[in-house]
Every structure is written in C-alpha cells, then in structure tokens.
Amino acid sequence: MSLAKQNFSNVVEDSINEQISQEMAASHAYLSIAAFMASDGVALPGFEKFFREQADEERGHAQKLIDYQNKRGGQVILQAVPAPDPEWNSAKNAVESALQMEKGVNKSLLRIEALADENNDAEFVRLLRSEFLKEQVESISEISKLITQLNRVSGDGLGLYLLDQTLLEHGIHGVAGEV
C-alpha cells in the first residue's frame, strides 16, 4: 500500500482506471476519425486537424488521471483499448459519432463524480468539476455547433469545402463563433 494513500477509496481508484481507459478509447476513436478525414476519398484537412487535436486532448485527459492516481497513492491499471468502429460514410456522420462519444464520456465523468462525492473525496470532486466536466461541456457545445454548420452546408460541395478551410485556418472557434 502506498504511503500517500489517504481518504482514497478503492471504488474511486477503480473508477479512475476505468475513466483512463475511456479517455484512451476516445483518443483512438478521434485518431480514426482524423484518418478518415485525411483519406483521399474525403480529403478534409481542417477536419483532420480538428480531430487530431481532439485525440491529443483526450490522451492528455488520460495522462492527468494517471498523474492524479499516482499522486493519491492509487495503482494505475491500464486496460486494452478497443479498436474504434470506423463506420462513417460522411464528415457529418463522423462528427455526429464524436458528439455521442463526448456525451458518453461526460456521463461517465458525472458517475465517478457522484462516487467520489459519496466517498467524501472532495479533492477528486474538485478536480473533476474544475477541469474535466467543464471541458466536456465545452467540447459538447463545440461539436454540436459543428454539426449545425454541417447541416447548413448540407452535402459534400463548396459549403463543406469552405467549412473545412475555416476549421483549418481558424480552428473550432472560427466555426463555432466563439472568442
């Protein structure tokens, strides 16, 4: 047992390991979407860039949880990351898939926040609220706005090209109208 472990229940420790796996699975899924966007049949470099950045962000979340688990005296147990299911037939379909994934990650974070609260782990609750849950709300909002923009351009023509170029040059904030 770690000398650092204090007020850190096994239930919370296990849930952190599960969340690490979920964040890594999301990172893999985003890499897969980025590869789809980069393929010669799709050729959307702005979307590719956006999804590569999302993959990095999710991997960063996993690393934060690994670092936190170690800081609290928990044991990091990495699990196999399942292969993503690349069943996208359009940019819009891939972005809709990403939105559902983000909502699933958010649901999982809310579940472990409740577990941490039940186990009187105020420090972990604070971390989840200040860093993870806030970012999830922002990601869900950004991806939702991207879907709205994709609905406006409806299809694979000039509108999609212009949206992709905006993503490439200005990132999601240029598309979502945020500052």
Rank of each mutant, 00 (worst) to 15 (best):
F47K: 00
F47M: 13
E48R: 04
E48D: 07
K49E: 10
K49W: 11
F51Y: 07
R52V: 08
R52G: 12
R52W: 09
R52N: 03
E53N: 14
Q54H: 01
Q54M: 12
A55H: 04
D56V: 10
D56T: 09
D56E: 15
R59Q: 14
R59S: 07
G60L: 04
G60W: 08
H61A: 15
H61C: 12
H61L: 08
A62P: 07
Q63T: 15
Q63F: 12
Q63A: 03
L65C: 02
L65H: 06
L65R: 02
I66R: 05
D67A: 04
Y68N: 00
Q69F: 10
Q69A: 06
K71R: 12
G73F: 04
G74A: 03
V76L: 11
I77S: 05
Q79A: 13
Q79E: 13
A80R: 09
A80S: 12
P82T: 11
P82G: 14
P82W: 01
A83N: 08
P84V: 09
P84C: 06
P84S: 03
P84N: 02
P84F: 15
D85R: 12
D85L: 14
D85Q: 13
W88F: 07
N89P: 10
N89Y: 09
S90Q: 02
S90M: 07
S90G: 02
A91K: 00
N93V: 07
A94N: 00
A94W: 01
V95I: 14
E96F: 02
E96V: 12
S97V: 14
S97T: 14
A98F: 03
A98C: 14
L99T: 02
L99P: 01
Q100R: 14
Q100K: 05
M101R: 13
E102K: 04
E102I: 09
G104N: 09
S108W: 04
L109A: 06
L109V: 07
E113I: 06
E113T: 14
E113Y: 06
A114L: 12
A114N: 06
A114E: 14
L115G: 00
L115Q: 12
A116N: 08
A116V: 05
D117E: 08
D117R: 02
D117V: 05
D117S: 15
N119M: 01
N120H: 05
N120T: 14
N120G: 02
D121H: 03
D121R: 00
A122E: 08
A122W: 00
A122M: 08
E123F: 11
E123Q: 14
E123C: 10
F124V: 00
V125H: 00
R126L: 13
L127S: 01
L128W: 01
L128K: 03
L128A: 07
L128M: 11
S130H: 15
S130W: 04
E131K: 11
F132W: 02
F132Y: 01
E135P: 03
E135I: 07
Q136A: 10
Q136H: 04
E138L: 06
S139N: 15
S139R: 14
I140Q: 11
I140A: 03
I140F: 09
S141H: 13
S141R: 12
E142Q: 15
I143H: 07
S144N: 01
S144Q: 03
K145E: 15
K145A: 15
L146Y: 06
